[in-house]
């Protein structure tokens, strides 16, 4: 991206909003062309602001931005999609916020990630239709893949040998499964059952739409969630803050 351009236009999804000063807000946006950016909208919290409704967390907008000294300045915004189906559902909102936090934590600013932008758009489209936790799991694994933290699921990460059809040791530090012969000295891990290994394998090749169609027992879903959480925690070296909220929502009546 050229630093010479004084203004630029992007399509982006707003991941986060922080209010500052009397009426300004700083937005963290994942864009198609410029990656993750922070930009400030002046006087956005005033009732007369023309951009007010177009700039909000979980809104896909067409944005016009001017380069600023420290922060770029949002000058025009127009909503493309406000994801009403998600924002009116607590589970879906919590899932979207969790995935936004993951993107924020895993990515650097101004590093173009068009594939991640597309993955997020696809995820939000699916989230409009279903609050299936499989969609979140798929997004977690897809995010890891796109950012170079792919979990090696086809064979042993040490000897590249084929994994037999039996529970295997997943070692996050090694980046995948380790066969019984190579276990010694491979690091701390967790034994993963065959159905979960299959879920991990299928996630690496299936589209999100196909993935949410598969049937998984509640027990396996919980185990699968624990595995992906462990992988995320390993790479981030901490738990995303929004995970607890996502996992502890009050039951719907």
């Amino acid at each position: 991206m050229s630093r010479k351009e004084r203004t630029y236009r992007i399509e982006g999804i707003i991941l986060r909003r922080r209010n500052i000063g009397e009426a300004d807000s700083i937005f963290t946006i994942l864009s198609h062309t410029h990656g993750k950016i922070d930009a400030i909208a002046r006087s956005i919290r005033k009732p007369r602001s023309k951009m007010r409704g177009h700039l909000e967390t979980l809104v896909q907008s067409s944005l016009f931005i001017a380069r600023g000294k420290s922060l770029d300045i949002l000058t025009q915004a127009e909503t493309i999609d406000s994801y009403q189906e998600i924002r009116t559902d607590l589970e879906k909102s919590a899932a979207a916020l969790y995935c936004f936090e993951l993107i924020d934590l895993f990515t650097e600013k101004e590093e173009p990630l068009p594939e991640l932008y597309k993955a997020l758009k696809d995820f939000l489209e699916i989230l409009k239709l279903t609050s299936s936790s499989l969609a979140v799991r798929h997004f977690e694994l897809h995010l890891l893949n796109l950012l170079g933290y792919q979990v090696h699921v086809s064979g042993c990460v040490v000897c590249d040998g084929r994994l037999p059809e039996q529970p295997a040791l997943l070692v996050p530090a090694a980046g995948g499964f380790v066969c019984s012969d190579c276990r010694l000295g491979s690091g701390a891990g967790r034994i993963v059952s065959v159905p979960i290994i299959k879920l991990l394998r299928f996630a690496s090749k299936a589209t999100l739409r196909d993935y949410i169609g598969i049937r998984v027992s509640a027990e396996n879903l919980n185990l699968f969630s624990a595995i992906t959480s462990e992988l995320i925690r390993y790479h981030l070296e901490r738990e995303p803050k929004s995970k607890y909220f996502l996992d502890n929502l009050p039951p719907s009546s």
């Binding site: 967390t57 909102s93 009050p250």
Partner: peptide, 18 residues
């Protein structure tokens, strides 16, 4: 009516359901 505000309202609404 921000995303967080909506989530809070929905959360409270759920607590009020009984």
């Amino acid at each position: 009516p921000s995303l967080e505000g909506e989530a809070t309202a929905m959360y409270i609404q759920r607590l009020l359901a009984p």
